Amino acid sequence: MQITIRLFAGLAEVIGSSSLSFDVAEDTLTAGKLKELLSASYPDAAPQIAVSLVAIDREYAPDDSPISAAAEVALIPPVSGGETGSVTESTPNGLYMITDQPLVAEKLLDKVLDADHGASLLFVGTTREMTEGRRTTALFYEAYIPMALSKLQEIGNEVQKRWNAHCAISHRIGYVGLKEASVIIAVSAAHRELCYEASRLAIEMLKQAVPVWKKDINESEQQWLGSDPLAAAFENISSTTL
């Protein structure tokens, strides 16, 4: 059986490709077995493979999940945070977007305003220059776009279910300079307390489960910024707590 695997961020750099055709001799293949076989075939990448998650058809997959030859498979490394070129993709309702173009907060806010809502809130994440004594000149974001849009939609659904609040999210990919916005979350709700809670939940869920990666760029080096493995992605997303 031959499967095609999408790779991202530092893992793609170590293996030397963003897409890998991989031959498997076994008649049956699981997500966990795939990681074992890849680690044996690419020993230099084995440490990163070990802490990565497998996504099957744009959903995070436990180790015992079966993989068919027709499945869309991706290996998701545990980093937080772009694809190059002119890219703008969104969900059909236009509320969730991945783009390499500058983000405009006012346009996003307009998508969530409601005559029955008395509070609205914008969260804007920007590139900062100094982090723990390290100077940044720019950030570079990469995303598994189809899955990222699906996860952003899940966040909006959860916000709607919990607080009857509206939510829209745009995330930048590619190079993002100092003080430029990398992510904007717009929320509206009946009251301000609900609005604050919904906004906080949205950014926390985004950090946990949306496959977006971030590379720090400074004058002397470039480094993918790591975070804890996305173990929370295997939990029911509705169980996320503040």
Rank of each mutant, 00 (worst) to 15 (best):
I67V: 14
T88V: 15
T126F: 00
V212C: 04
Q223A: 10
L103H: 03
S86R: 14
G118P: 08
Y60K: 02
Y196G: 01
E13P: 02
L95Y: 09
E193I: 11
A233F: 09
A190T: 13
S86F: 12
T28G: 01
P211Y: 00
A55K: 05
A45Q: 00
V112A: 00
L75S: 03
F123C: 00
I217F: 09
S170Q: 07
L53T: 04
A232D: 12
D228G: 09
L34S: 06
R134D: 09
N236I: 07
D100M: 08
C167K: 05
I203E: 00
P78W: 04
Y42W: 14
L108R: 03
L108F: 11
S182A: 14
A168W: 09
W224M: 05
L113R: 15
Q101N: 10
P77F: 06
A71E: 05
G133K: 10
A69M: 08
V124M: 07
D44F: 07
V51P: 00
I49K: 03
E142K: 03
S182P: 02
G133E: 13
F140R: 01
A9Y: 07
A202S: 15
L230Q: 08
Q222S: 14
Q222G: 14
L121I: 13
L113N: 09
S86Q: 14
S90Q: 13
L109W: 08
D228C: 06
S120G: 10
L206I: 04
V112Y: 02
S188K: 03
S182T: 09
K179E: 11
L149Y: 01
T91F: 11
V212L: 10
I203D: 00
P43T: 11
D64Q: 13
G82F: 00
R128L: 06
A115G: 14
S188M: 08
L122Q: 08
M205R: 05
